[in-house]
Amino acid sequence: MGGSVTKPFHALVHLVRKPHTVKIPYEKHTDMLGTELPTERYRGYHVNDIEACIGCGFCGRICMNAAITYVEIPELKGVTKGLPKRPVVDYGRCCFCGLCTDVCPTKSLKLVPKYNYVDEDKNTFKVIASPLLKKNDGVKISRDYLVFSIDDLHEKLGDYIDEIIRKKEEEKKKKAAEKAKAKKENAKEEDKSKQEKS
């Protein structure tokens, strides 16, 4: 304990130190390098791309909290691949471990770095993982983007499913056109080769 006379005054340094309080919610949370947190890797709420999802049920099987159940969406029948059922996540059970995303074979289920979910009603924590992933770039999780009930889902899904169908038909047409084109070219080439032969 080398006591020096000036030692007590060392504390004065702290008067000019920059405060390290993060003034949430008025300020953004950054780390020491200035990267905004949370980063991409953060395991927040679920987002499911219902076009890519095939309803295999792996996420529900690996979930040790039985947090993932499934809901049947008849509109999806024939529109997307696989079964027309999609996961419903219960945030009264979820522990954000991310095992469900690891087993997802299509990688359609993702955890996004959003975490604020405060509500006074405990019945609102069962959520159909947002189907609006592609519609709104930059996924925002707030009450407006979450789908709570099946009725709500049909209402919110209406346009979305039309869009999926439209896209699919477009794709089909495109493919058909390409095929036709390829056939034509093939035929032409054959003609050419025949001509050359002859």
Binding site: D31, L37, T39, R41, Y42, R43, F96, G98
Partner: peptide, 22 residues
């Protein structure tokens, strides 16, 4: 606690969570 929080920031970027890293 304040200084520990800087470490938690690093944890969060590496592992994806602040407290339970899994």
């Amino acid at each position: 606690v304040g200084d520990r929080d800087y470490l938690l920031d690093v944890f969060e970027q590496i592992t994806g969570a602040r407290v339970y890293h899994i």
